[in-house]
Design a protein around this nucleic acid. Sequence first.
DNA 1: TATGAATGAGGCTTCATTCAT
DNA 2: TATGAATGAAGCCTCATTCAT
Lengths: 195, 195, 195, 195
Amino acid sequence: MTTAARKMDPDGKREAVCRAGEALFASRGYAGTTMAEIAREAGVAVGTLYTLFPDKRALLTELHRRMERRFADATQQGWAAGQTAGERLDRMVDALFIAAAEVADIMPLYELTRDTVSSDDYRPGAAVMAVIHLQYTEAVSRGDFHAHDPAAAAAIAHGMVEGAMRDWAVRPGAREQRRTIRELKVLLRRAFLKG
Amino acid sequence: MTTAARKMDPDGKREAVCRAGEALFASRGYAGTTMAEIAREAGVAVGTLYTLFPDKRALLTELHRRMERRFADATQQGWAAGQTAGERLDRMVDALFIAAAEVADIMPLYELTRDTVSSDDYRPGAAVMAVIHLQYTEAVSRGDFHAHDPAAAAAIAHGMVEGAMRDWAVRPGAREQRRTIRELKVLLRRAFLKG
Amino acid sequence: MTTAARKMDPDGKREAVCRAGEALFASRGYAGTTMAEIAREAGVAVGTLYTLFPDKRALLTELHRRMERRFADATQQGWAAGQTAGERLDRMVDALFIAAAEVADIMPLYELTRDTVSSDDYRPGAAVMAVIHLQYTEAVSRGDFHAHDPAAAAAIAHGMVEGAMRDWAVRPGAREQRRTIRELKVLLRRAFLKG
Amino acid sequence: MTTAARKMDPDGKREAVCRAGEALFASRGYAGTTMAEIAREAGVAVGTLYTLFPDKRALLTELHRRMERRFADATQQGWAAGQTAGERLDRMVDALFIAAAEVADIMPLYELTRDTVSSDDYRPGAAVMAVIHLQYTEAVSRGDFHAHDPAAAAAIAHGMVEGAMRDWAVRPGAREQRRTIRELKVLLRRAFLKG
DNA sequence: TATGAATGAGGCTTCATTCAT
DNA sequence: TATGAATGAAGCCTCATTCAT
């Protein structure tokens, strides 16, 4: 998609629109942002938005998807980077918070859920959850994690990360933020790791 | 004010409006619900809505607050009902999911956050988190829980409950739902309980 | 003074409502003032307004009429106070500006015309104009004033006073205001007085 | 901006809207006219009104300004057309009443003042008054007019014209109207002209 | 007569979307 | 493909007025 999109979009208009949308949706909310504002911020005409996305909702959904993909990728790559199960958890958390730091300024975008992006085609959170589900199942089958209902376990693990991220987001300074990350690691290990 | 308002409102108009708002916001979302619909559903005139709440946003915030209060109360009372720390966790989870079952049909309302209810005056989730924070601190000081940064621990515990509730909400049947609850109890105990 | 006294004195209620209406209409305009505000300011219930006046428009018309009556009376009495025609003009101007000073703070009320008080039953300005018309005719018949079409002359004289009053209203300080009054006297004399 | 706007508006939409606004505001008043009516009358969509003017009030202000400009221009040009001071006064009055005749049907618009167009940015009457002030000062310095406080004199002269116009507006037939004009000329000359 | 909660019609305004250029 | 002026449906909210108490 990236390659294809780039071919169709040599001017980077799509990228400009996405960036404008991220910034505006994140700071003003979905209803509080108009298509005209996005167009102005992106430096394109309103009509152009509609050559790139079918409608406003679709733009937000795309942005949400991009963000979720970052987190899903981070989850996956972090996990893969570890050797032991414990290490995998730690690397995953590290990768997630590196991603979080990269998108910290547009994080509110990720909370624009139910009223907006949620639809039959797209369940926010599903992509990350799917990765966690997979990893969890693998770790259980290797005997590294305690066995639970996988869906429940994945949902709860996902919740732990989300909770930690919310706490992390309001912490003043890097040192304080590292503390949240450390606690999350410990709690994840204690909750899931065997032995 | 709530009590006073109820005294001034023997017809239960305010209550009717809240119920109508809960049902409609939950099923159609915030933007998808009009004040006229709420008025019709509640059996009052549109103008009456504006004698009860300053504007649409304020109505949603009130509903959100009510729901959060239920959960905060459940958390507190469940916790108090247990003898040992482990029991307290279990009772708290039980109470939370009893509350969740009571409001299951309007649960989506609780997700209508950032874009809508969030404001300087009201931070969604703060009330429940505060209760958890208190309980956690108490349990640590009694030596029942592992010591962590209290804010981080509370946020993560809160995330676990939220994650479990999302899973619970999509489970088919009571038996399946009970499984989620069981897993949550185990994971909470393992994450926080000493020994 | 306040609630009890007013209850014992229905005429006081009407007066209170008029005063509140004057203050509010003058400062916020007609459309910018609500019946509820007037009621609150007057210390009565909204319903009471409707026992005193048939509707909002009628209240404004009444206030306008009161004000106009003041000016009409001042015109008449001032005129009558003079011996010669020139003196009559001077006394009339004096009396008019004494009245203007008394109602200076609610003067804008007098400008709320066409869109509001004007109707088939009430022509704003007519009362004052009628007095001027009469005085002018009398002075002409006595040979004191130049003969003109009486309606035109009255309208123009009225305009001179209105123009002077607008200038007077924006003048800083009593000394400056007296200058406007002096000029008006001279111009009226020159325009109308024979010899 | 007016010129620029006209260039951007070859369809004459802005002009159509202004005409519709003039007709409706004049006949029904400000509060009595809806934006929907104006749009319908002008043959454009409601939304188009808001691309031309920020809001209803701004539209009225613009119309008021246009009308005032006509009178200010007439005042200036009429004045310039005369040779002697007396002639200048006469030409000015002629020009003003020619303008008045041209806009006779929308004259009530000019009375929609205080409650509506008056604001910090726009003082109704100020433009015409400024021209009169200038002319008056010039005539005094030439020794043609009696010396008075210029602001007071301008305000009073302005009032004379306004008064005459009100009388003129209710006169039946051209012959009657000419009489008002004639009287105004005489009174202006007598009030201001030296010798 | 006084009250003030309730009413509901109706206005202004917004803004996603379209389409002729 | 890009543009942006034009559209018009739709919603929030106001507030004069009523009427049961």
